[in-house]
Simulated assay, not measured.
Amino acid sequence: MGDQAKVQSHLNGHRARLRERFLKGGADALADYELLELILFLAIPRRDVKPLAKDLIERYGSYAGVLSADVESLRAAPGLGDTAVAAIKSVQASALRLARAGASTRPVMSNWSAVTDYLQGAMAHIPREQFRVLFLDRKNALLKDEVLSDGTIDEAAVYPREVVRRALELDATALILVHNHPSGDPTPSRADVVMTKNIIDTCERIGIRVHDHIIVGKTGQSSFKELGLM
């Protein structure tokens, strides 16, 4: 057996053992870089991807950070082609769809832990500020989960008009406001408080209730309602 064949045989054996450990023990049986290896196996069949998996976790800070990274950022990472980028992002998309389905099975206010888990997965590792709204019907069931701004949210004056316009289009009667802090600290800023008050005041004039404003950080969340800010 030639050197190249020996290398490929060793690689195939490693992959088979890793798959078997995963199938027997689930995700808890693997380190984060090994779980990422499983994803990369699908896209990079003839290369040892362990060093690449470790490099990606170091670059983005965590397994979740890799899955949440922007497509263009992943494309710029050494060792990743479009097939590998698509594999990584498809795993994130599948996880978020599963979490969102769990959050939508019951009225939002009686399924709060599932909702906050979904929001943490969707927003904690986004490297820019994103503002989204959960639009609810009269029974507090989720009508629509929609990103209204993807970037800075400093221009607070635009949001009351946009939020109300979209709520009326969807016939929503209640809302939950959500945005992330890329810094990782979910503590509300003064601008966050002012923006929230403006949206609440505008919504109240037409009978739409704002249940809460959630700020998502890398390690946790802040609730305006729990903090007494609304």
Results as ranks from 00 to 15, higher is better:
5 A>P: 06
5 A>H: 11
8 Q>C: 13
9 S>T: 15
10 H>P: 00
12 N>W: 10
15 R>V: 04
17 R>K: 12
20 E>A: 15
25 G>K: 09
26 G>C: 01
26 G>E: 02
28 D>R: 07
28 D>L: 03
29 A>F: 01
31 A>G: 12
35 L>K: 14
35 L>E: 10
36 L>I: 01
37 E>Y: 09
38 L>G: 09
38 L>I: 11
43 A>N: 06
45 P>D: 12
46 R>W: 09
48 D>T: 04
51 P>W: 07
51 P>A: 07
52 L>F: 02
57 I>R: 03
58 E>V: 12
58 E>N: 07
62 S>Y: 10
68 S>C: 08
70 D>M: 00
70 D>I: 00
73 S>C: 06
74 L>H: 00
77 A>T: 09
79 G>L: 04
80 L>T: 02
81 G>H: 10
82 D>H: 10
82 D>W: 13
86 A>M: 10
92 Q>S: 05
92 Q>M: 07
93 A>F: 09
94 S>L: 15
94 S>Q: 15
95 A>V: 13
98 L>A: 14
98 L>S: 14
98 L>C: 11
99 A>R: 01
100 R>G: 09
100 R>K: 15
101 A>G: 12
101 A>Q: 07
102 G>N: 12
103 A>H: 02
104 S>K: 04
104 S>C: 08
107 P>K: 07
113 S>C: 05
114 A>P: 04
115 V>F: 10
116 T>E: 14
118 Y>T: 04
121 G>D: 02
123 M>G: 05
123 M>V: 13
123 M>K: 15
127 P>E: 07
129 E>W: 12
131 F>A: 14
134 L>I: 12
135 F>D: 00
138 R>F: 09
142 L>M: 13
145 D>R: 02
149 S>G: 08
152 T>D: 14
155 E>H: 09
156 A>G: 06
156 A>N: 04
157 A>S: 11
157 A>I: 13
164 V>L: 13
168 L>P: 07
168 L>F: 15
170 L>V: 08
171 D>I: 08
172 A>D: 09
173 T>G: 06
175 L>K: 00
176 I>D: 01
177 L>T: 01
179 H>D: 12
179 H>I: 07
179 H>V: 08
180 N>L: 02
181 H>F: 10
181 H>G: 06
181 H>T: 07
182 P>H: 11
183 S>V: 09
186 P>I: 03
187 T>A: 14
188 P>I: 03
190 R>E: 08
192 D>Q: 02
193 V>S: 06
195 M>Q: 01
195 M>C: 00
196 T>S: 04
196 T>M: 14
197 K>P: 04
197 K>S: 10
201 D>H: 04
204 E>H: 05
204 E>F: 13
205 R>G: 06
205 R>H: 03
206 I>F: 14
206 I>M: 06
208 I>T: 00
209 R>S: 10
212 D>G: 03
212 D>A: 06
214 I>V: 08
220 G>E: 02
221 Q>D: 06
221 Q>M: 11
222 S>Y: 01
222 S>N: 11
224 F>E: 09
225 K>M: 13
226 E>P: 08
